[in-house]
Amino acid sequence: MISATIVAVLVSMLLALVRAFMGPSFYDRVLAVNMFGTKTVLLIALLGFLSGRPDFLDIALIYALINFISVIAILRYFEYSNRKSSIQET
C-alpha cells in the first residue's frame, strides 16, 4: 500500500520533470519545480514510514520550507524584470 503510493509519487515526479524540461515559458518551469518539491516532501515522508525510520520527517519539513523560500526568491528577483523576451519565445 505504501509502495503503491510511492510508485505513484515517483511517476508524477517524472512527469513534473518532463514539464520542467519542456518549458515552454519560465513560469511553467517554476511551477514544475514547485510541484517537484512537494512530491519530494511526500516521497521522503513515505520512505520514512516504509523503512520504519520516522526521523526522515525532519528532512521532509526542511524540504517544504526550502521549496517555499526558493519559489518566493525566484519571483522576488524576476517578477517585473526582463522576462518578456522568454514569454514571447513561446
Binding site: S25, Y27, V30, L31, N34, T38, V41, A45, L57, A60, L61, A64, L65, N67, F68, V71, I72, L75, F78, E79, Y80, R83, K84, I87
Partner: peptide, 26 residues
C-alpha cells in the same frame, strides 16, 4: 506540522506565481 506548512505555503506560492505571470503579460 508538515501538513500545516504545505497547506499554507502551497496555495501561497501558487498565488504569487500566477500573479507574477499575469503581471508580466502572459
Amino acid at each position: 506540522m508538515i501538513f500545516l506548512f504545505l497547506l499554507l505555503t502551497g496555495p501561497t506560492a501558487n498565488h504569487a506565481l500566477v500573479k507574477a505571470a499575469l503581471h508580466s503579460g502572459l
